[in-house]
């Protein structure tokens, strides 16, 4: 039933998701759930973008070594999330992105979010966390060369990724609570979250500065050893 045996149908579904389902979700959101249920739309869009990425990953042939390293980085990141307050989650995601590429960075961010939420609580926020952390890893991959060389770009990236995470998650918080975007609430949410945002920013920059060299070095060595 749910397993689709036919490859062509599979491929068609993969095309359907971005071009048909996402617009459909928006339409359904607008017409069925008021014209104001942006929360529903945003949730579906977040979920589908993650699914889309995973579908692309599923299709590509990934070497066993690469897959294992990414999995280990995911598990390390989840383990890191147990550090109280100052969490190295984003730093590890970024380091993976830099050294193993954007796709690996996205996967580490997204998977760390969904797995760690088994321990920290799943909720409708999970897809947003997946997307936010995943994007941070993905972009780090695109900027890999720049980030690998300089400490300053790395610090700047850590700083902005902390802000980015807060800004994205607060959009969701407001939409969820209020159904529509309310700029007053959004600003208020951002202001209330300042201590948290500060912690994100500080821990991102701090961990990136400290962990990039040792962990990046280990990743480089391992890539050689795994013949990647």
């Amino acid at each position: 039933m749910v397993v689709i045996k036919n490859n062509r149908i599979r491929n068609i579904i993969k095309i359907l998701i971005p071009f048909v389902l996402i617009p459909a979700a928006v339409v359904v959101g607008v017409f069925v759930f008021d014209d104001r249920s942006y929360a529903f739309i945003s949730l579906v869009v977040a979920l589908l973008s993650v699914l889309l990425f995973v579908a692309g990953f599923e299709k590509r042939r990934t070497g066993t070594g690469r897959m294992a390293i990414v999995t280990i980085m995911v598990a390390l990141t989840v383990t890191g999330r147990f550090v109280p307050y100052f969490k190295p989650v984003v730093a590890l995601t970024v380091i993976t992105g830099i050294y193993l590429g954007g796709e690996a960075g996205f996967l580490v961010g997204a998977m760390a979010a969904v797995i760690s939420n088994f321990y920290f609580g799943q909720g409708p926020w999970t897809p947003f966390q997946m997307l936010a952390w995943g994007m941070i890893g993905l972009v780090a991959g695109f900027m890999g060369e720049v980030l690998k060389k300089g400490r300053i770009p790395l610090a700047v990236y850590g700083f902005f990724s902390g802000l980015f995470f807060s800004f994205v998650m607060d959009v969701w918080t407001v939409l969820w609570y209020n159904k529509t975007m309310d700029w007053n609430l959004y600003v208020e949410a951002l202001v209330t979250a300042i201590p948290f945002t500060a912690i994100y920013v500080i821990s991102n920059v701090f961990y990136l500065m400290i962990l990039k060299k040792p962990i990046g070095g280990k990743l480089e060595r391992i890539c050689l050893k795994y013949r990647l």
Binding site: V2, V3, L51, V54, A55, F57, E58, T62, M67, A68, V70, T71, I72, V74, A75, L76, V78, T79, L107, M111, V114, I115
Partner: peptide
């Protein structure tokens, strides 16, 4: 696994690694 067997395997591997890493830590 119904959505993506590869993703599912990676999840399973992570769930195997996490308690292992906790013990090692």
């Amino acid at each position: 696994g119904k959505v993506s067997p590869k993703f599912s395997l990676m999840l399973s591997m992570s769930l195997r690694y996490i308690p292992l890493f906790a013990t090692q830590a």
